[in-house]
């Protein structure tokens, strides 16, 4: 179990309730007036905190602060000039300056963390763009990727033709996977490939689990739904701590996807009563809740490569 730290307590008990958040803000306001300091400043001064934790705390503060709304937009989604401008405004508002206008050590910490945070928001844009690239059967690059996925999962088995019932054996809906990528576009395909490439044995094992006689589910379609789930988690800021503590990159995003896939498979087969594919959305919803709780508790994210029999 992880140590329960301030950021976890805030996520679990303060930010999750608008009433408690209001009370918390009033206390902060009074403390700030009394001490002529600010929460942001205190966090940046705290030498015991790791940079990851500081960065995550700054993200929380920026997100839940009413007074820093414009600054937040400029910092995280704006141009370089807007970032500089917002940074100066925050330094002034949050009492980072004494008498002179020299940048203090705390101010430098703040900037460093903001730049790290910015990466997580840029990642959202990059991934959304990828999800918006529709799968195109006339694009040779896309077609090659699709064949790569087939080979990774099916090895030597030959695909009789491009349109084939065989696609259903890896969990597509019909004879042509092209239409199944709707919504998640090329991102859905790339994540499936990442999983099948980097955790080949595990992916193949899960594929075979998905063929369960009673509780079968469609492997590839589930993968596409997991991509959508992960993108939601990212947009709803649940992935922030994970991305800050690793690295805000596509690679980290893909690693988390592999974690999601293995966790989903375990979750699916461990329902109190065996389920069928018709329970999918219901199970998927409680799965999302479980993952959010893991993330809020900052539980370790480890891809489960153990080949369990179901």
């Amino acid at each position: 179990m992880n140590n329960i730290t301030e950021d976890i307590i805030l996520d679990k008990y303060v930010y999750s309730s608008s009433f408690i958040l209001k009370v918390y803000k009033i206390i902060k306001y009074v403390l700030g007036k009394l001490s002529n300091s600010s929460e942001l400043l205190r966090i940046c001064q705290n030498e015991k905190l790791r940079e990851t934790k500081i960065t995550y705390r700054i993200d929380q503060i920026l997100f839940y602060s009413d007074k820093l709304k414009t600054e937040r937009m400029k910092l995280l989604n704006g141009t370089k000039e807007q970032l500089e401008e917002a940074y100066e405004q925050i330094l002034r508002k949050k009492k980072f300056y004494d008498n002179n206008t020299e940048k203090t050590a705390e101010a430098k910490v703040l900037m460093k963390c903001i730049l790290r945070l910015k990466e997580t928001y840029e990642l959202q844009d990059i991934l959304t763009k990828k999800a918006n690239i529709a799968y195109d059967s006339n694009n040779q690059e896309h077609e090659d990727k699709l064949m790569e996925l087939w080979t990774l999962l099916k090895g030597d088995e030959k695909l009789n033709s491009r349109k084939s019932e065989q696609w259903q054996t890896i969990g597509f809906q019909g004879v042509d996977p092209a239409t199944d990528f709707r919504g998640m576009g090329i991102l859905g395909l790339e994540q499936l490939i990442y999983f099948a490439q980097n955790f080949n044995d595990t992916a193949k094992h899960i594929l075979s689990c998905s063929h369960h006689k009673y509780s079968w589910y469609s492997f590839a379609i589930t993968g596409i739904n997991l991509t959508a789930l992960e993108l939601d988690l990212l947009r709803e800021r649940h992935l922030q701590y994970y991305l800050i503590s690793h690295e805000a990159s596509i690679e980290s995003f893909n690693e988390f996807y592999c974690y999601l896939f293995t966790e989903f498979n375990n979750f699916w087969f461990k329902r109190p009563e065996p389920v069928t594919v018709m329970h999918f959305n219901e199970v998927f919803k409680s799965f999302k809740e479980k993952i959010i709780s893991n993330l809020t508790n900052q539980s370790p994210i480890i891809v489960d490569t153990e080949k369990k029999k179901y």
């Binding site: 809906q173 998640m184 469609s218 739904n225 959508a228 594919v277 999918f280 959305n281």
Partner: peptide
């Protein structure tokens, strides 16, 4: 409707 995924089961 921009990010619809294939339906497993039902909605």
């Amino acid at each position: 409707i921009s990010e619809i995924r294939p339906t497993q089961g039902f909605n």
